[in-house]
Amino acid sequence: MRCPFCGHLEDKVVDSRESREGDSIRRRRECLSCTRRFTSYERVEEVPLVILKKDGRREPFDRQKLMKGLLLACQKRPVSLARIEELVADVHARLMERPDREIRSRELGELVMDELKALDQVAYVRFASVYRDFKDLPDFVKALEGLMHKEAHKEAVERGGAMAAPEPAKPISPALFPGEAEAPVLRTRRK
């Protein structure tokens, strides 16, 4: 291993530890020339994951890019960095379990949003707004309504009862439109 400080090629391993996930080994090394210490990580070489974008491009899966997006979504939210790193590791592990190494970006986004929804709902809406490219307020409202409906259903199930079916929308009476024969007449008093 080349020393990052002096470039010398010989060193000794001072300490080795396996990561919590068991997917890498962290080694503390000491250069035999300048005696400075540095850390190296060893990972098993894998067939890389490839993300198939909407426009047909292919790009390698980038943990740092996913981490950056989640950090932005969780900005000023009560979500620890450790929890975000854990979420990224979980998503990566689930992708690695798949037999195919090519994943559509839509599948990746949905997987991340499912994980994020359970972690922090505001961060979920932020991430979804960028991922789904919300154009206007109705897109936000639709996402929030879906989130609120699922939350209400979850609470009903926890209470032990089934959630009542939503009431159908009531038709608008033609009498509510001015100019119609049945429209009510509004009268005001003069002082």
Rank of each mutant, 00 (worst) to 15 (best):
F5C: 00
C6F: 01
L9T: 14
L9E: 11
E10F: 01
D11F: 10
V14C: 04
D15N: 14
S16C: 07
S16P: 09
S19P: 02
R20Y: 02
R20Q: 10
G22W: 03
G22T: 12
D23Y: 00
I25E: 04
R27N: 05
R27L: 07
R28K: 12
R28H: 06
R29F: 03
E30R: 14
S33A: 15
T35K: 15
F38Q: 06
Y41H: 03
E42C: 04
E42K: 09
E42G: 05
E42P: 01
E42M: 03
E42W: 01
E42T: 11
E45D: 08
E46P: 03
E46T: 14
V50F: 13
I51G: 10
L52Y: 01
K54V: 15
R58Q: 15
E59F: 04
E59D: 11
F61P: 06
D62M: 03
D62P: 05
K65N: 04
M67D: 00
K68N: 11
G69D: 01
L71D: 11
L72V: 09
A73L: 04
A73K: 10
C74W: 05
Q75Y: 14
Q75K: 15
Q75T: 13
V79M: 07
V79F: 02
V79L: 07
L81Y: 10
L81I: 10
L81T: 11
R83D: 12
I84S: 06
L87E: 03
A89Q: 07
D90Q: 13
V91D: 03
V91I: 15
H92C: 02
A93Y: 05
R94C: 04
R94D: 09
M96Q: 09
M96I: 02
E97N: 12
R98Y: 01
R98D: 04
R101H: 02
E102S: 07
I103S: 03
R104T: 09
R104Y: 07
R106C: 01
E107K: 12
L111P: 02
M113E: 04
E115L: 09
L116T: 14
K117Q: 14
L119Y: 02
Y124W: 04
V125I: 15
V125K: 04
F127S: 12
Y131D: 06
Y131F: 15
R132T: 01
K135G: 14
L137G: 03
D139C: 03
D139G: 15
D139R: 06
F140R: 07
A143W: 00
E145W: 01
L147A: 12
M148Q: 12
M148Y: 07
K150I: 00
K150Q: 15
E151R: 14
A152V: 13
A152L: 14
A152M: 14
K154Q: 15
E155A: 13
A156G: 03
R159H: 05
G161Q: 15
G161F: 09
M163D: 07
M163W: 08
A164M: 05
P168I: 06
P168Q: 07
A169S: 11
K170A: 14
P174T: 08
A175C: 12
A175N: 13
A175Q: 10
F177L: 15
P178V: 08
E180S: 15
A181C: 01
A183H: 13
P184D: 09
P184N: 07
L186S: 10
R187E: 15
R187F: 13
R187S: 11
T188I: 13
R190A: 13
